[in-house]
Simulated scan of single mutants.
Amino acid sequence: MNFASVRVITADIDRLLPFYEQVTGLPATRYTPDFAELRTPTATLAIGSTRTLQFEGGQGARAASNQSAILEFRVADVDAEYQKLAESLRDFIVQGPTTMPWGNRSFLFRDPDGNLVNFFAPVTPEAIQRFDG
């Protein structure tokens, strides 16, 4: 089994999609007005409008109500990403670059729907070993 993607449901895909394109630097593929994907080499961030829920029985997901999941992106240099994005994210930053006890350098912010996003890089030998084997 391979973990393939995370889908974020939003009431405003036209606001959320450009946000993720800006912060990741990745182009989105918009398949329909209600569904798009940003692909990385290891996983995909899918973004669907609330209208996509009708295809799945209309139950089980509510836009902008995440209280427990964090979308995490491994980056080469957390501090460089922070410097690049700090001005545009100033109202969304939760935590500036910090080295966590488990060996990752981390920068946390919220997307326009309130979802928590973590840009991180392993920096200690143990953390690097965990990710790179």
Rank of each mutant, 00 (worst) to 15 (best):
7 R>V: 14
125 P>F: 09
130 R>M: 12
65 S>R: 15
70 I>Q: 06
80 A>M: 00
47 I>Y: 00
100 M>N: 08
99 T>A: 06
34 D>P: 02
9 I>F: 09
43 A>C: 10
127 A>L: 06
52 T>R: 05
46 A>V: 13
14 D>F: 03
83 Q>C: 09
16 L>A: 05
114 G>I: 13
10 T>L: 03
27 P>R: 15
76 A>D: 15
64 A>F: 02
65 S>F: 04
16 L>M: 05
30 R>D: 03
55 F>H: 14
74 R>V: 14
32 T>F: 00
60 G>Q: 00
75 V>L: 02
38 L>C: 04
36 A>D: 00
133 G>S: 01
71 L>N: 07
74 R>L: 11
13 I>E: 01
14 D>S: 13
3 F>N: 01
96 G>H: 08
39 R>S: 15
34 D>G: 03
86 A>T: 14
97 P>M: 03
85 L>W: 03
31 Y>R: 02
72 E>P: 12
129 Q>D: 12
96 G>I: 12
70 I>V: 15
87 E>K: 09
92 F>A: 14
31 Y>A: 02
14 D>H: 05
33 P>C: 01
87 E>L: 07
105 R>W: 02
63 A>E: 03
67 Q>G: 15
118 N>S: 10
90 R>A: 13
14 D>P: 13
58 G>K: 10
108 L>R: 14
80 A>N: 04
97 P>Y: 03
60 G>R: 00
82 Y>G: 01
97 P>L: 06
37 E>Y: 13
59 Q>M: 11
8 V>N: 05
51 R>H: 13
21 E>H: 07
68 S>D: 00
20 Y>F: 10
84 K>F: 08
82 Y>T: 11
41 P>S: 01
64 A>V: 05
114 G>D: 02
68 S>A: 09
128 I>W: 08
110 R>N: 07
101 P>L: 00
40 T>D: 04
6 V>Y: 01
96 G>Q: 10
47 I>N: 02
123 V>F: 09
106 S>H: 07
98 T>A: 07
126 E>Y: 14
87 E>H: 11
31 Y>H: 08
114 G>N: 06
29 T>A: 12
85 L>I: 09
92 F>L: 13
104 N>I: 12
82 Y>V: 13
48 G>F: 00
62 R>K: 14
73 F>G: 08
26 L>Y: 09
41 P>A: 04
89 L>M: 09
46 A>W: 06
22 Q>S: 15
86 A>Y: 06
115 N>A: 08
94 V>H: 10
25 G>W: 01
80 A>R: 01
50 T>L: 08
130 R>T: 13
75 V>S: 04
90 R>T: 14
33 P>W: 01
92 F>T: 15
6 V>W: 00
50 T>G: 06
11 A>T: 13
21 E>F: 10
130 R>Y: 12
70 I>W: 08
128 I>M: 14
113 D>C: 00
4 A>W: 11
39 R>M: 08
66 N>S: 04
105 R>E: 06
16 L>Y: 04
87 E>C: 09
44 T>P: 14
81 E>S: 07
108 L>H: 15
12 D>N: 07
57 G>Y: 12
101 P>Q: 00
74 R>E: 14
131 F>A: 04
102 W>Y: 14
97 P>F: 04
53 L>E: 03
54 Q>R: 15
36 A>I: 11
15 R>D: 10
82 Y>C: 07
11 A>S: 11
114 G>W: 00
64 A>I: 05
87 E>S: 15
10 T>F: 01
83 Q>M: 05
10 T>K: 00
